[in-house]
Design a protein around this nucleic acid. Structure first.
Length: 601
DNA sequence: GCAAGGTC
């Protein structure tokens, strides 16, 4: 029984065998147990066993023109770091009668299952092979899956291998081309990379920065007034922007006495958040905890391995029916939020529900109670971040089971003849889930009670000069949302694509904001000019759709791969024709930078 | 030395 990760292998042993014996084979944890009267062994891999690479002679950048890589596809090869897993697999498979491929129930899992089958077939041609799929690592789901084994879905595996091949080919061709174009201006070991995910990410950040730089602020004028209604004085304003002060003042001069035309005090529910997926964890940690997405996922991984939270890479926002939420609440009774958890248990609760299920993992939720001091003890130097993320996961979980907040939305509109002035306010009636999830707490600015028909007297009227503002700098949270919208990367990799840009010197992260460097701006600008298809945010979605046709329409990769390559060869030629301009644009920045550095030293 | 996707 082969799982994608150790924790799942252990769960399989526990749920199918009850008791089990742990033994390391070539360092790989293997769980032995009895199942249906026979001896079984479950081991967990560490993701993919294989990868694509070009032949050695194609890996000498200066020797081979990059475009040659379009001609020969890279090969599927074993990964160096998976050697212990390969050995363990072979030694177990050698005498196996049946093999259960229990990898995650997603396309990557299908590909890894195929890789596993390849390895096993090298040493065992007779064993029966089954594919088992479960949507949650729970007793019920796992037992049901093993009672109804199915077969490998080769199309899904093919799709993944096609993506791996295309991404490497495109990445290598354009990375080498860019790097060789400015070879003399690069530092030792430096290179300029292109990737079908990283580059559109850079494109979105640079596009925003250029919008900001090209923004021409314009002055405009608004009217504000202090208005007396009954015994109350209320700040009101007109929802109109005037182009000139003169126009605004002409209207302002006419504001004297009016009448209340609308007075609305309407209760409104603010719903608690959906169950937590990876991207929302990253976005919220970036915004509210000041922890960037890469760090967040790193820390979440640690918390998961120590058993404190569930698997952190998930796109699911619906609690599976097999997850006992009551039990989780009982467990949380031993945390700092124990009173809150017990209150939910006593008063009853209904979980919120999002709209996606990745079919492989549940939403992120706490799996073990811990106090602050325990987390600090367990994680040592990383304690600060570990506690921040753990506490966030706990609070988010509790919030999803909590009642909504209740506010009163308030609005007063007064008619002054020529113009209407209005004021909006809000009063909190019931804090609901904000008690545990204060990041979403909305501030109160209550308005007094007035009634339609009340007389409104303007006590003070003023014209205020304002300026239109450029769009704000791109925040990491916003960028993640854009990536999700355009289908760039997966839950587990989005933060990687951001940080690849940082590593390459294309972009910096400062207090949750993405700030492109001059190099990033120069590269993106050139690509927008000479080969926009390489950098527009829609590239990845188009490619993903084409790849999906392998699964959906039975399109053969043999036809699809040459088609995609031909398309990108066109972009390559377009870029090559402008190589001199490209070189000049990039070198201007690269050389400028070096001089700057020299100047500093 | 290239990518993006798993995993620790």
């Amino acid at each position: 029984m082969v799982a994608e990760k150790r924790s799942v292998a252990q769960a399989i042993a526990k749920y199918l065998g009850g008791t089990y014996r742990l033994q390391k084979i070539y360092g790989v944890a293997t769980y032995y147990f009895r199942y249906n009267g026979r001896e079984a062994a479950a081991l967990g891999l560490s993701g993919h066993l294989m990868d694509f690479d070009f032949a050695a002679r194609q890996n000498i950048w200066t020797w081979l023109p990059p475009e040659e890589l379009f001609q020969t596809p890279p090969l599927l090869v074993a990964r160096g770091e998976t050697l212990p897993y390969l050995k363990a697999l072979r030694s177990l498979a050698y005498k196996a009668e049946e093999v259960y491929l229990a990898l995650d129930a997603d396309v990557e899992g299908e590909a890894i299952a195929y890789e596993t089958a390849l390895v096993i077939r090298l040493v065992n041609r007779r064993a029966k092979m089954y594919r088992v799929r479960f949507n949650a690592v729970t007793y019920k789901d796992i037992r049901a899956a093993f009672q109804k084994p199915t077969r490998l879905d080769l199309k899904q595996a093919e799709k993944v291998f096609t993506r791996m091949q295309i991404d490497l080919t495109l990445g290598a061709v354009f990375t080498r081309f860019l790097t060789l174009t400015v070879k003399n201006s690069l530092q030792k070991g430096q290179f300029l990379s292109y990737g079908p995910c990283q580059t559109p990410v850079l494109g979105m950040v640079v596009a925003r920065e250029l919008e900001r730089r090209n923004f021409k602020p314009e002055k405009y004028y608004v009217i504000k007034a202090l208005v007396e209604i009954g015994d109350n004085k209320i700040e009101m304003s007109a929802d109109i922007r005037f182009k000139t002060r003169k126009e605004a003042e002409a209207v302002a001069a006419a504001i004297r006495q009016g009448v209340v035309k609308a007075a609305v005090y309407k209760p409104h529910h603010v719903q608690p958040p959906d169950p937590l997926d990876t991207v929302e964890l990253e976005r919220r940690a970036s915004r509210w905890l000041g922890i960037n997405s890469k760090k967040t996922l790193d820390v979440a991984e640690e918390l998961y391995r120590a058993g404190y939270i569930s698997y952190p890479r998930t796109e699911t926002t619906i609690y599976p029916p097999t997850l006992d939420l009551r039990e989780v609440l009982q467990e949380l009774a031993a945390t700092e939020h124990g009173d809150y958890a017990e209150e939910l248990l006593r008063r009853g609760f209904r979980p919120t529900r999002g709209d996606s299920d990745d079919g492989a993992h549940p939403p992120i939720y706490p799996t073990k109670a811990a106090t602050k001091s325990e987390i600090y003890r367990t994680f040592g130097k990383a304690g600060y971040h570990a506690w921040a993320i753990y506490d966030f996961v706990v609070r988010h979980f509790l919030a999803t089971l909590s009642p909504p907040a209740l506010v009163e939305k308030q609005k007063i509109v007064a008619d002054f003849g020529k113009i209407h002035l209005e004021a909006v306010g809000q009063k909190t009636l019931d804090e609901g889930y904000w008690r545990i999830y204060s990041w979403e707490r909305q501030s109160e600015k209550p308005l007094p009670r007035v009634e339609v028909g009340d007389v409104a007297r303007a006590v003070k009227v003023e014209v205020v000069e304002r300026e239109t503002e450029p769009p704000p700098q791109m925040t990491e949270s916003e960028l993640l949302a854009l990536m999700r919208k355009h289908g760039i990367g997966t839950d587990a990799t989005m933060q990687d694509h951001i940080y690849t840009n940082v590593k390459r010197g294309y972009m910096k992260m400062q207090r949750g904001k993405c700030i492109p460097t001059e190099l990033g701006i120069a590269l993106a600008t050139a690509l927008f000019k000479y080969a926009p298809e390489l950098i527009e945010p829609t590239v990845r979605a188009r490619m993903e759709k084409a790849l999906q046709s392998i699964v959906k329409d039975g399109i053969s990769p043999k036809n699809l791969v040459p088609e995609i390559k031909a398309e990108f060869e066109k972009y390559y030629q377009a870029l090559k024709e402008r190589r001199e301009e490209l070189r000049r644009a990039l070198e201007a920045v690269l050389n400028g930078k070096q001089e700057e550095r020299r100047g500093h030293s």
